[in-house]
């Protein structure tokens, strides 16, 4: 019997692709690797730094143009469930999208 578990394979590092939405600035480099054991919070902090945003600047992050994970969700769990072609797609916007 094949495994009922439909997870994507996750290695120690997860490839993350950032995509800007609406008027959010586009990153010079959009693909990064992040440790699978990190929490989603680490991605939020990282993206804010890349964009040079202050903590007070509004920024919204979504997985697969769909939902915002809780900051303490593990990257490996998100990658296991939501990777597309071995990448975790993170859409970001300066106003709430897909709400």
């Amino acid at each position: 019997m094949q495994s009922p578990n439909l997870s994507h394979d996750v290695s120690d590092k997860v490839v993350v692709r950032f995509r800007s939405t609406g008027s959010a600035p586009i990153l010079k480099r959009s693909i990064f690797k992040i440790s699978a054991t990190q929490k989603f919070q680490a991605l939020i902090v990282f993206l804010r730094k890349e964009l040079g945003y202050k903590p007070s600047d509004p920024l919204f992050l979504y997985v697969n143009s769909s939902f915002s994970p809780a900051p303490d969700e593990l990257i490996e769990n998100l990658a296991r469930c939501f990777c597309v072609e071995s990448q975790l797609i993170i859409n970001y916007a300066t106003t709430a999208a897909w709400g």
Binding site: M1, N5, R80, C81
Partner: peptide, 13 residues
Amino acid sequence: SIIQIPSSVYCLL
């Protein structure tokens, strides 16, 4: 520890 997975509910034989 938390492991989140998508699981199928049936499997083909």
